[in-house]
């Protein structure tokens, strides 16, 4: 297990780089800023690695950190005792990885990436309070423990202990044979390839990736508003509008910064599917209540500019009976 993790860690150094290079290489103001923002939590780490990374590496030995990280993951609380055979394996793995790592010393960026991944293990076995050790996150305090992953990085599913999605997103992002999803508490959902365990996307959420005053996240260059809102919100020379995570944002065309949330959408109503949780109360606009009142057979609910007809018994959404926007 440890060997596998270490090997994966080493492999990730090389495998993550093209994706990282691609991200950084696009150089678009919006996306670049967004990525910087997301990794803001790592900024300190980056800074540390850049300022004192080399000497720090020599003094403390980053390879050992990976091993420590592995230990903390493998044993709840990070305090497991190892057999002599395991310790030998462990040292052999250390030597092997050190050799591979030494071969890459000339590349600071790789060292930084390596440092990021091994960083959570820094506190590892020594001096980790029991409360943090139980989290199996390498003894990082809350708020720092969930910032270490990035697109292109290969991970171990076990590293995502405690990264459950907010319940509101469970229906939208659920684990499948193709992908699984985890949340980083910073406003992004990680989409991870189930086969390779590589993080393939960061999905921004309201208040996290999409936040007023921040640059629009990468990947939202094209106008994408739901049809019913296009007449109300369209791009101009000054502003443009983008839809994401159930909200429509007004973005400064010059700076690419989100200036305002102009509409919040529910985004969870689909004909043929069950009425989502949270629509127990009748909620139609006043002027439509006479025409669409709940009956024993049908009930009506409003969301995102539409009035939906719902079968009272089955709770299945039957149709959009009125488009209001």
């Amino acid at each position: 297990m440890r060997k596998l993790i270490i090997a994966v860690g080493a492999l990730a150094i090389t495998s993550a780089m093209p994706a990282l290079a691609e991200k950084g290489g696009k150089g678009e103001g919006k996306g670049g800023q967004s990525q910087s923002r997301h990794h803001g939590g790592n900024g300190g780490k980056h800074g540390q690695a850049e300022q004192g990374g080399k000497s720090d590496l020599r003094q403390r030995g980053k390879v050992a950190k990976v091993a420590k990280h592995d230990r903390s993951l493998g044993a709840p609380g990070g305090s497991r005792d190892y057999t002599q055979a395991e310790r030998k394996d462990f040292k052999r793995d250390e030597r092997s990885l050190r050799q591979r790592f030494d071969g890459r010393r000339g590349d600071n960026s790789q060292q930084r990436r390596f440092d990021e991944r091994s960083g959570p293990a820094h506190a590892g076995l020594q001096g980790c309070p029991p409360g943090l050790a139980k989290k199996n996150n390498g003894c990082l305090p809350p708020g720092q423990a969930k910032r270490d992953f990035s697109v292109g990085q290969r991970i171990q599913p076990a590293w995502f202990s405690g990264y459950a999605l907010p319940t509101a997103y469970n229906d939208l992002y659920y684990d499948s044979d193709e992908y699984y999803y985890r949340y980083n508490d910073e406003g992004y959902i990680y989409r991870v390839d189930s086969g390779s365990n590589m993080i393939t996307a960061l999905i921004p959420l309201l208040g996290g990736g999409f936040s007023v005053g921040q640059a629009l996240p990468q990947g939202f260059g094209a106008y994408n508003l739901p049809t019913q809102y296009r007449d109300n919100y369209y791009d101009t020379n000054e502003d443009y509008y983008r839809y994401g995570d159930n909200a429509i944002y007004r973005v400064n065309a010059g700076s690419g910064v989100i200036e305002s949330v102009v509409a919040l959408l529910a985004g969870n109503m689909n004909v043929g599917q069950a009425l989502p949780s949270g629509y127990d109360a009748y909620n139609l606009p006043m002027e439509y209540r006479d025409d669409y009142a709940d009956t024993d057979e049908d009930m009506y609910r409003y969301a995102d500019g539409n009035i939906y007809q719902v079968d009272t018994k089955t709770q299945i959404i039957q149709a959009i009976v009125k488009m209001l926007v």
């Binding site: 907010p166 319940t167 509101a168 997103y169 959420l205 309201l206 208040g207 159930n246 909200a247 919040l264 959408l265 529910a266 969870n268 989502p276 949780s277 949270g278 629509y279 127990d280 109360a281």
Partner: peptide
């Protein structure tokens, strides 16, 4: 139950 537009219930 009421679904909020912040994603919570």
């Amino acid at each position: 139950m009421l679904a909020t537009l912040g994603g919570s219930q």
